[in-house]
């Protein structure tokens, strides 16, 4: 009887080879060459005239940490990431708890509608919010004025630009947290919460002692996924403010883009990339370990 072992041992590798080649050539090699380039001085000009990169050791990193511009972008990134993830987790969880009751009519429809912001291109999201934030013919200022409030210079006021971007991100990504948490809540066995009710648990007791502990790991994964994505966020900000006014909304990924294509310093941009990659690797390794553990179970 033929079994897997009598078949050619080359066969499995034939199936895996295309994936290996693509990952090695288009992901791993560029990442490694990017890390290598972060130790070199190399400009767009060097590239244009065909000059070789010059090895400078850790100079790029030293420059970065001494640069107020870079430190500002770290600060902006942390403010942005911290705010959006905290807000999205709280609002997403609240919405999921509101809609968890499966007897609610139209639940499926609402769940479907909530997918829309996630699917729409970041460019489009940026454009639409830029339109709504427009100081004179934006709809938000019109609403404010109707309510008797003063108009806000959403994107052109250095103090308001980052909060405005945070609002747009919360609009786009809260539904993502909501969907994950809702799926988690619906997988909590019904008898558990019913047992709580029979024993006279109040809604809040039920929530804090039964439901939340049951979906703890789901909440953690949702938070890590959002953290990773928030550190990567770029396009919506690119379209809405391009980092401005001044550098008040210049997150790390936008700083990277500008260092490469405006300042044309490819070596230094690679150093920014290494730092961003480091942050994301820590986050994604945490997630990978957790996922593999639950796979094995």
């Amino acid at each position: 009887m033929p079994s897997v072992s009598t078949r050619s041992s080359v066969t499995p590798w034939l199936f895996l080879t295309p994936a290996f080649v693509v990952i090695a050539l288009i992901l791993l090699y560029p990442v490694f060459s990017g890390v290598r380039l972060s130790f070199f001085s190399y400009s767009m000009r060097d590239f244009a005239v065909g000059a070789d990169p010059t090895f400078v050791g850790l100079d790029n990193f030293r420059h970065l940490f001494a640069s107020p511009h870079f430190r500002n972008s770290i600060r902006v990134t942390l403010t942005f990431v911290g705010s959006v993830v905290a807000l999205e987790m709280v609002v997403g969880l609240a919405l999921a708890l509101l809609m968890e009751d499966e007897k609610l009519k139209g639940l499926r429809l609402f769940r479907t509608l909530f997918v829309l912001p996630i699917m729409i291109a970041p460019v489009v999201v940026g454009l639409v919010w830029r339109f709504m934030y427009h100081p004179s013919y934006g709809i938000l200022n019109y609403f404010l004025q109707t309510l008797g409030a003063d108009p806000v210079m959403w994107l052109s006021d250095p103090g308001m630009a980052l909060p405005s971007i945070i609002i747009a991100d919360v609009w786009q990504w809260t539904p993502f947290v909501f969907l994950i948490v809702l799926a988690g809540l619906q997988s909590v066995p019904k008898d558990l919460t019913e047992a709580g009710i029979v024993d006279g648990c109040s809604y809040l007791q039920n929530l804090f002692h039964i439901k939340l502990p049951m979906i703890g790991s789901v909440l953690l994964v949702a938070a890590i996924l959002r953290l990773i994505d928030a550190f990567r966020a770029l396009v919506v900000i690119f379209v809405m403010t391009y980092g401005g006014p001044g550098v008040s909304t210049e997150v790390l990924s936008l700083h990277l883009y500008k260092t490469a294509f405006t300042a044309q310093r490819l070596g230094r941009a690679s150093a920014v990339a290494v730092i961003l990659l480091g942050i994301l690797l820590i986050l994604s390794a945490t997630l990978a370990i957790r996922t593999l553990r639950s796979e094995r179970r």
Binding site: I23, L234, S253, A273, L280
Partner: peptide, 27 residues
């Protein structure tokens, strides 16, 4: 298993990190 863990981490690579190296490589 190692390959799977690797793919899981690769999923997180943002486009912007590939920007400079792929730009140079594609050139």
């Amino acid at each position: 298993g190692v390959f799977l863990a690797l793919t899981l981490i690769l999923k997180m690579i943002p486009e912007v990190i590939l920007l400079v190296p792929v730009f140079l490589l594609w050139n």
